[in-house]
Design a protein around this nucleic acid. Structure first.
Lengths: 391, 391
DNA sequence: CTGTTAGCGCCTTCAG
DNA sequence: CTGAAGGCGCTAACAG
């Protein structure tokens, strides 16, 4: 049973003082190479590891990043945050940090947990997920000058990023609008014109963002999106119901972009069941093969199979052959860790641009001065479209 | 900006020595009530929190429990471990512990991580998930007398718990066989006789366990399970294929118990597509309503709709109306934390029985002596059957 | 019951 | 470049 090996043991073994060992660890350039190697060898053979607790007492840094684990959401989309969390754990480890988990039901209890954690385990930073309108967490953390990043833009009251005078904080996000735009474009390219959108009620930043990409693309192609979308709560049953309405509307859709895989799965059900029962709509007809024939409509969309595209590329999408917009979650996690470490160890000033990141250009980079002294950096990542049988 | 408040500040505020404050925190019974209240009030108004780092240096305990976050598995079952992890985080917090996360690809890297963690953040314990045949992690930890619990029985080489002389360690598990048995019984009660099983290739402890509950129940009802099951890799497509075989076999099944929701989802697809196309089998016929009419077979099963039951009660099961066996994951997590804290703070000896737990009787409680001195305790939880449209 | 003493392992001065 | 002090905040032993 190897009793705890300390820095003193290493020093003795290497024939140097404890400080030299410490220097080898923290400022190697101060130590002569020969000595350094000797110390490192001693560290290796003894299996020495610096005690975090002792180090933290001295430096005030815990090398811990705290984040919340969310309870299983109703839907199918829960896996998104899990994948993010896995990426975060891996990225953090690479940067020498560990993830500390906490659970919290609502904002109040989450902030209480912040308070608790800050006093006890003293994480070096927080990563916030699932940001929302009027999110009180960033303000609380900023007031106390606690480093943090959000995965998700700060959604202002208008649904636009930074629209409400938010002084800003580092964030990473995925460009949802670009994702739905790509999906819509793909369907346009396949000859579809009446491309619907199945989303959530207005007011959720993420949902509005995703809808906007669809609407923008349709408009750009000279198609009026009015009447082609439905808003509903997230869920398979809700999605199925809303999709039915769209498929049997006066101007029936022939393809559908959805704000989530749950909705898309519901839509798929709707398509299949309408297909199976050979139902008619006011101006369209679903054939046995899932092809929708739109009577008397102009354009080349006659006989095209009804297409559905989801969002998040969850395991279910893969399982049922649903095309979906995929978020680069590992990259997002890496981005969070990157922004955080940049806060801790500021890069040499005057370096390369500090906005933007891999996979896409940065955001607008507004001129807000950061009174907290932290650089207002952010990373906006581009999603990708994963095509399967459903489109 | 509230600068770090220390135990000295509290002592001064309360007019006592630092030691007294410490006593109020750790051994309140040693302090006169009046003093205690005064100190507590000072703690409250000052917002004092004991520094974990300092405490850890003194006590050697970090109040951290390390566990692994698994990468997204292929399937749909990933959510199981996430729900467990959430429960673990919540239970640990209630007991005054936090969860420290790590990621690891294989056993080798996981053990390297153990080593790293033990030397740096020094978690008080580990929780191991996804145990498997020949799992090398428990032995590694036990050799070093590091406290740990596994979620999952130690599967011996024969597939039976503790069959290979494993000296034992604390574990929590869910009785999978009881779950499939309940599912099978439910189908028997509904009049089914040819109840199939869709599982994984033999050799996986969990899979064999689940199959055994089905086989046992069928045998108990006087039905020979031979030829009524299929083994395949986990996955919707694999499940669909295997289910087709079963539905069109010489002795076609009329109901199906599955080892996972992925397989069950595939089976559901198979049932629906066979139903839709009105396919015939050697001795059965699927009607349009998904009813299987078995020609010339004895028993009351004619005209019964084909039933499918999954395992794990994942969000997808809920979404598509699939009946499924549900594991009590929050309880399992609580059980892990309970076993761990029992290790740290042993209950008064001669207390109540130390085996078994809520929801079910304990395991066999073999007579192995534990050379490490730790009590070999375990908790076997009972799953429940969640019925939906599919059964 | 309360106060004093000592030191956990490390890193940051400051001298050599 | 290397060695000698000092102390981060806390608690386990003792002394009063």
């Amino acid at each position: 049973m190897a009793t705890k090996v300390t820095i003193t043991d290493v020093a003795r073994r290497a024939g140097v003082s404890r400080q030299t060992v410490s220097n080898v660890l923290n400022s190697p350039e101060l130590v002569r190479e020969e000595t350094r190697d000797r110390v490192r060898e001693a560290i290796g053979t003894l299996g020495y590891r610096a005690s975090q607790a002792a180090r933290q007492m001295r430096t005030g840094r815990s090398r811990l990043i705290a984040t919340r684990i969310e309870p299983d959401r109703d839907g199918i989309n829960g896996s998104v945050l899990d994948r993010f969390l896995h990426g975060l754990t891996a990225s953090a480890a690479r940067a020498g940090y560990r993830i500390l988990l906490y659970a919290a039901g609502d904002e109040r209890s989450e902030i209480d947990t912040f308070d608790d954690l800050v006093g006890s385990h003293e994480p070096d930073a927080f990563v916030l997920t699932s940001t929302y309108h009027g999110d009180g967490r960033p303000a609380w953390l900023r007031e106390r000058r606690l480093p943090f990043v959000t995965f998700g833009r700060p959604w202002g009251d208008t649904g636009e990023p930074d629209a409400s005078g938010d002084p800003g904080h580092p964030w990473v996000d995925v460009d949802g609008a670009a994702g739905t735009a790509a999906a819509t474009r793909h369907l346009l390219d396949a000859g579809h014109r009446r491309i619907g959108f199945l989303g959530w009620p207005p007011g959720s930043g993420v949902g509005d963002d995703r809808r906007s990409g669809w609407a923008r693309t349709l408009t750009g192609a000279g198609i009026d999106p009015a009447g082609l979308d439905q808003a509903t709560d997230d869920g398979v049953a809700d999605g199925e119901k809303a999709a039915r309405d769209l498929l049997r509307a006066e101007r029936p859709i022939t393809a559908l972009v959805c704000a989530s895989d749950s909705l898309a799965l519901g839509a798929l059900h709707a398509v299949r069941s309408l297909t199976a029962s050979g139902q008619l709509t006011a101006s369209g007809r679903l054939t046995a093969e899932g092809r929708l024939t739109v009577g008397g409509q102009a354009g080349g969309e006659e006989g095209l199979p009804v297409r559905v595209i989801g969002f998040d590329d969850t395991p279910v999408a893969k399982a049922v052959g649903l095309s979906s917009v995929s978020q680069p979650l590992a990259e997002a996690a890496a981005g969070c860790v990157g922004l955080l470490t940049r806060l801790f160890d500021p890069p040499s000033p005057g370096g390369p641009g500090e906005s933007g990141g891999p996979g896409g250009p940065g955001g607008p980079g507004g001129p807000f001065a950061s009174e907290a002294g932290g650089p207002r950096t952010h990373v906006l990542l581009q999603p990708s479209l994963v095509l399967r049988q459903s489109s």
